[in-house]
Simulated assay, not measured.
Amino acid sequence: MSGFEKPMIAVDLLVFTIKDDRLKLVLVQRGEEPFKGQLALPGVFVRQGETLDAAAQRGVAEEAGLKGIYFEQLYTWGSLERDPRSRIISVSYLSLVDSERITLNAGERTSATALYDVEELLSSDTPIAFDHREMIAYGRERIKNKTEYTRIAFEFLPEEFTLPQLQRVYEILLGKPLYKANFRRKIAPLIEDTNKMTSGDAHRPSKYYRQKPE
């Protein structure tokens, strides 16, 4: 087996959040070639003796200051032309998190890290390194689809939230407005009252809820 060339394995991280009523994504600006100066997903190479999940956890900790968050393996990208340096296979991971938990850090090979509006990014001609534009579009569609039949929307919220906050998250993820009565009837089995109310603002107080255990 020693005569076989071994491809390198990378993990690319799609860290989605909601901020200013928009779905956003952590991107870095590459500080070296290839694609120096272009936007890219944060990522790391998998180390010897390291699992893919462990590499993903290390990556989100290094690039976004995150630990103990929701993430799942999204897709494996293996086009022969995807990286001009060598044969590099990438396993992409999808992470969803409340924006208040994110701490943006520039990595060793990047010059800046920031949040970018996903819809604006995908509809623009902004250069994005490697095949990361395709990864972002794939991740956006996965979130939209899973919002319909899973609880992933709760990952974007703090532990306690109001019903208007929860509905707005669903609307952003699904890309459409929702009727309040229908939404509340559908979501009722998934949440429970905390017996707390909002205070300190000019609006009518709202109840705080939390997600019921599955």
Rank of each mutant, 00 (worst) to 15 (best):
residue 3 G to F: 08
residue 4 F to G: 02
residue 4 F to W: 08
residue 5 E to T: 07
residue 7 P to D: 06
residue 9 I to S: 04
residue 10 A to T: 05
residue 10 A to H: 08
residue 11 V to R: 02
residue 11 V to A: 14
residue 12 D to A: 15
residue 16 F to M: 01
residue 18 I to S: 02
residue 18 I to T: 10
residue 18 I to W: 05
residue 19 K to F: 09
residue 20 D to M: 04
residue 21 D to A: 14
residue 24 K to P: 00
residue 26 V to R: 13
residue 27 L to H: 07
residue 29 Q to F: 06
residue 29 Q to K: 14
residue 29 Q to S: 10
residue 30 R to G: 03
residue 30 R to T: 04
residue 31 G to R: 06
residue 33 E to H: 12
residue 34 P to M: 08
residue 34 P to H: 04
residue 37 G to N: 12
residue 38 Q to K: 12
residue 38 Q to P: 00
residue 40 A to H: 01
residue 41 L to C: 14
residue 41 L to R: 09
residue 45 F to Y: 08
residue 47 R to S: 15
residue 50 E to F: 07
residue 51 T to R: 08
residue 53 D to S: 14
residue 54 A to T: 13
residue 55 A to D: 10
residue 56 A to M: 14
residue 57 Q to M: 12
residue 60 V to M: 12
residue 62 E to K: 15
residue 65 G to T: 11
residue 69 I to W: 05
residue 70 Y to F: 15
residue 72 E to W: 01
residue 76 T to E: 13
residue 78 G to E: 10
residue 78 G to P: 00
residue 79 S to T: 00
residue 81 E to F: 00
residue 84 P to Y: 11
residue 85 R to T: 11
residue 86 S to Q: 13
residue 87 R to Y: 10
residue 88 I to R: 09
residue 89 I to T: 13
residue 90 S to E: 08
residue 90 S to N: 11
residue 90 S to A: 14
residue 91 V to D: 12
residue 91 V to P: 00
residue 92 S to C: 07
residue 93 Y to N: 01
residue 95 S to Y: 01
residue 95 S to H: 05
residue 96 L to K: 00
residue 96 L to G: 01
residue 97 V to Q: 00
residue 100 E to N: 09
residue 105 N to A: 14
residue 107 G to N: 09
residue 109 R to W: 08
residue 111 S to H: 01
residue 114 A to P: 01
residue 123 S to Q: 11
residue 124 S to W: 10
residue 131 D to M: 07
residue 132 H to M: 00
residue 132 H to C: 14
residue 134 E to M: 09
residue 137 A to W: 06
residue 140 R to D: 03
residue 141 E to S: 13
residue 143 I to W: 05
residue 145 N to I: 11
residue 147 T to F: 02
residue 147 T to Q: 02
residue 150 T to C: 02
residue 151 R to C: 03
residue 152 I to T: 04
residue 152 I to E: 06
residue 154 F to P: 02
residue 155 E to R: 13
residue 158 P to G: 09
residue 159 E to V: 10
residue 159 E to N: 04
residue 161 F to L: 06
residue 161 F to Y: 13
residue 162 T to F: 03
residue 162 T to G: 01
residue 166 L to P: 07
residue 166 L to I: 10
residue 171 E to W: 10
residue 171 E to P: 05
residue 173 L to V: 06
residue 174 L to R: 15
residue 176 K to Q: 15
residue 176 K to F: 02
residue 176 K to D: 02
residue 180 K to H: 03
residue 180 K to C: 01
residue 180 K to L: 09
residue 183 F to P: 02
residue 183 F to C: 06
residue 186 K to H: 08
residue 188 A to C: 03
residue 189 P to W: 12
residue 189 P to V: 14
residue 192 E to I: 07
residue 193 D to M: 03
residue 194 T to H: 06
residue 195 N to T: 00
residue 205 P to K: 11
residue 206 S to H: 14
residue 206 S to C: 10
residue 206 S to F: 11
residue 207 K to L: 13
residue 207 K to I: 02
residue 209 Y to W: 15
residue 213 P to A: 09
residue 214 E to P: 13
residue 214 E to L: 11
